[in-house]
Simulated assay, not measured.
Amino acid sequence: MRLAIIGGGFGVDGHLPAFRAVPGVNIVVVADSGSGRIRDRLPTGTAYAGSWQEALSMPVDAVSVAVPPAQQCEIVLASLSRNMHVFCEKPFGLNAEEAETMNAAALSATACVAGVNFQFRFEPGLEALRERIVAGAIGTTCAIDLSWVTSGRANPGSPWSWRNDAAAGGGVIGAFFSHAADLFWWLTGAEPQSVFGQSRILVAERPDAAGTACHVTAEDAVTAQLEMNGGITATCRITNCQPGGDGMRLVVRGSEGVLVYRHAPPFGPADRSLVCLKKEAVAVPISTPPPECRSAETRLWAVHRCAGQFVRRVRGDQAAAFPAFADGLRVQQVIAGLRESIASRRNVMLRPACES
């Protein structure tokens, strides 16, 4: 499979190593916005392009889109119009309207495979958690509580970027809550019915490359509560600006017990745990990445596994399971409700989930 990667940030840091590790994938070209800074980081035989248009003009079968949300829709639509398969970063567009447009285009491009990188479905600890839920280890699921607290942007001196710009799709709602909304559905199979949330900007200004203070317009903290089918309540608290942040803690409460998953910084294989609490606490084993991947964050290993499933489907394996554009649309519909709730300070009923 001949692949173009669009994006000089996570496209190079995440998508490039993920797809390089998939047998039979030829990364033809990697594009950024024209800065050229990624040239020296590309493997031998991979071309550099200074624009996504240049990259799509090359002989490729598939496109991996890893650009800010505000730029995703145009690239995805152009790729599908050329009958190229598309692997797109979350949160899948800038808003629900763009997500709906991209999903409709994918449904029309029947020969194309279209997926979204909700890679946490492929994190081994979360897979083990889901297996226990599906097997009925804690009975009927009643509630899910997610605390996702990191220190990645806690330093006010960390430079301003598009991630601090709401108009570009920055903020923890797109970066983190999009994963949370996907996980709540994937873990339980229950559709979200309503949402209530609040958000804050904890660091109001950040310096640009010249040291000039720039106003932050995108939230860096959010809390949300979702009511889901089957009487399940899902809550989350998310920020990437907490000094000493302790990572991800996901608690699933059932009628017969509790499952607790933790993944702490620096997010390696040894930093994960899964415990089933009934009459006593029982540790649940979590699979370990292969030797060549054990030094990396398991989050990046999960990107590789998600990319591998996408490639399998492109090659005709209908059993390959990966998040589709319809899943990206579902998440954006929840995000739209969350943003409406934050603006109105009230509980918001959600649109019916899209059909896959």
Results as ranks from 00 to 15, higher is better:
C73Y: 01
M248R: 07
G36T: 02
V22Q: 14
K278H: 10
G170V: 05
G244R: 11
L16D: 06
R39S: 03
G174C: 00
A221E: 15
A343Q: 14
D32L: 04
C142G: 07
G115Q: 11
C112L: 07
A283I: 09
R20I: 07
D271Y: 03
P23M: 02
S35G: 04
A296D: 14
F92Y: 15
A224K: 05
R294A: 02
R132V: 01
D182R: 01
P68H: 01
I286Q: 10
G93C: 05
S295Q: 14
E280R: 14
L16N: 05
A221I: 02
F267M: 10
I173S: 10
V222L: 14
P207A: 07
L187Q: 14
G115Y: 02
T233K: 13
L107Y: 06
L338K: 05
V65H: 05
A234G: 09
A209G: 11
G231E: 03
L274R: 02
P68C: 03
P23T: 11
V216E: 02
R330P: 04
A353G: 14
G8L: 00
E205R: 13
A106Y: 08
S81Q: 15
M349K: 12
F176E: 04
E256P: 03
S35K: 14
A175L: 07
L80M: 11
S161Q: 08
T46W: 08
R39Q: 12
E340K: 12
T44H: 02
D13R: 15
V314F: 00
P323K: 07
L80D: 13
Q193P: 02
L3C: 08
A181M: 05
F322H: 15
E54K: 08
V258Y: 05
D145H: 13
V282H: 10
D220P: 01
S341W: 00
Q72E: 01
F10E: 11
E355A: 10
P17F: 05
D327A: 11
C112E: 04
R2A: 09
R262C: 13
G139I: 08
I6H: 08
D246S: 10
V275H: 10
R39T: 12
A168Q: 09
P243E: 07
E127L: 09
P285T: 09
Q309I: 08
T298V: 15
M58W: 07
V331M: 06
G45R: 07
P291R: 04
I201C: 09
R305E: 14
Q225R: 15
A181H: 04
T233F: 03
P91D: 02
F19D: 12
R200A: 15
R200C: 06
G174M: 00
T46K: 08
R272A: 12
R305A: 13
T188V: 13
V282T: 15
W148V: 02
R20W: 03
L42Y: 07
S199I: 07
V331C: 05
E292M: 08
L94A: 00
F196M: 11
R37A: 09
V348H: 04
F310N: 01
G14P: 00
F92C: 06
V63R: 04
L350R: 06
P285V: 03
E340Y: 02
S178L: 00
V116P: 01
W185I: 12
P289V: 00
A18H: 06
R315I: 00
G8S: 01
T188N: 04
D327T: 12
S35W: 02
V29R: 04
A18P: 08
V86K: 11
L126Q: 04
I5T: 06
P59K: 09
V86W: 01
A213L: 12
